[in-house]
Structure formats: C-alpha cells, structure tokens
Amino acid sequence: MHATAPPSLPFDEVDDLLYFARANEAQDLQQSITELAQKYQCEPRHVLEACVDPETGNTVWHYCSANGFAELLRRLLALLQNGAEDGKTVGSLLLNARNRQGNTALHWAAYNGHLEVVKLLLAAGADMWVKNAAGHLAMFEAERADKSGVVQFLLEAGGREVERTGTEGQASAEDEVDVPDGEASGAEGAVVEGGSGDVNMDDA
C-alpha cells in the first residue's frame, strides 16, 4: 500500500532530482522519481512534493520553468495526475511553492520570457497573483525584464480571471510594494541560462 504523505528525502536524492531538472535530463529524472516512489512506497507526486532544496527552497518546477523546458514540464505535470483524486489541486500546491526569495516557478518563467511554460503553469493551477518577497507579481518581473509577450498574456489572463470571479483590483504589471532594507529585490539575477541548460542560481 502506498503512503499518502511525502517521504523525507536525503540531500543527495534531492540534489540528483534537481540536477536532472536543471540539465533537462527528462529520462533520468522520470526514472529517478519512479525508483524513489517505489523505494518509499509512495506516489511519484509525493516524491516531487518532497524534492525541495533545503538551502534555497528551489524545486524541480523552478529549474524547469527558469530554462523554459516545456516538454519536461509536461512530463512532470502528468505525474501529478497519476493516482490523484484532484490533480489540479495537487498541482496548485506544488507549483505555487515559493523559494527563499518568495519566487514561484511562474516568477522565473515570466522573468525569462518562457511563454509556453507560463501557459502550462497557469493551466496546471499556478497562481499568477502570488507576490515574491519583494512584493512583485510574475507579470511585474516579466515587464521589467522586457518580456512583452509574457506580460500581455498575463494581463489578458488576469482580466479573464477578474471576469470569472468578479474580483477586481487584484494587481497590475506595475504593482509593487515597499520592501524593508535587506529583503529580496525580486527575480532579477535569479536565473541565467547556459548552453547546457544549467541555471546559475545566484542565491535566488
């Protein structure tokens, strides 16, 4: 019988999973998730839930989104659906996880202009109204990085959300709150794409 809670993964197992996500090693990542699910007698989604860098708070979703690995993201999202009564609810919880600087996977995807990934994240339950520690929405990060396509999409998506829920005044691309000195300044410098798909974290 499978466990219903995420296992406690040792650092080396977390590190391996994060590396595979960062390097776009889809087959190795999927195989490792499957093996760990068998080892800990849990569902693959529980392994994904447990895979959080203890120092930075980064997840496979952060790395995948930062580098625009849309196909890898699709594979990971499919794992959330397997055996889940409500895959979208599970996805929402994981995709909206914030790292040490308060950035979600959507913040990083938006900042780097990965429109396809942004669309996948929103469809899977990512919350576009989450602010990072600097008080910035994902669309604000996209705007200051001059990713106009992402900004336009998020503004339109936000408008549809307002129409659907009847909630107005949520936020705009210009929204920002004052942050005490020493706090995070947003996603700037958070991710740098390399030729091998590696991400330079720079403490983001």
Rank of each mutant, 00 (worst) to 15 (best):
V117N: 05
G91F: 01
G149E: 15
H2N: 04
F153G: 03
V47D: 04
R22S: 15
G182W: 06
A123L: 09
V151N: 04
R22D: 13
A184M: 02
F11P: 08
M1S: 14
D53G: 10
M1Q: 09
A142V: 06
P6L: 12
L80I: 00
K119C: 11
A126M: 11
D86P: 01
D28G: 08
A171L: 09
L73Q: 08
E174R: 13
E163Q: 15
G113S: 13
L155H: 01
G102D: 09
E85I: 02
L115M: 03
A171E: 09
L120S: 02
L122P: 08
V150F: 07
A110P: 12
V117G: 05
A124Q: 02
Y19K: 11
A190Y: 09
T56N: 03
H107N: 12
E35V: 09
Q30K: 09
V192E: 14
L9C: 10
S32W: 00
Q30L: 15
S32I: 01
V151H: 04
S148L: 08
Q101R: 15
H2Q: 07
R100D: 10
D198G: 11
G87V: 00
L120M: 07
Q41S: 15
C64R: 00
L79P: 03
E183C: 14
T59G: 02
T89I: 03
D198M: 13
D203M: 12
Y19G: 07
L120P: 05
L94S: 02
L154G: 07
G102K: 08
Q152Y: 01
A26G: 06
A109S: 12
R100T: 11
D181F: 08
N99V: 11
H107E: 11
E35T: 11
V47R: 07
D203T: 08
D198Q: 13
A37M: 14
A134F: 11
D53H: 14
W129K: 01
V179T: 15
L94I: 01
N200V: 15
C42D: 02
D146T: 05
E13I: 06
E188W: 12
P44Q: 02
A5Y: 05
L29Q: 04
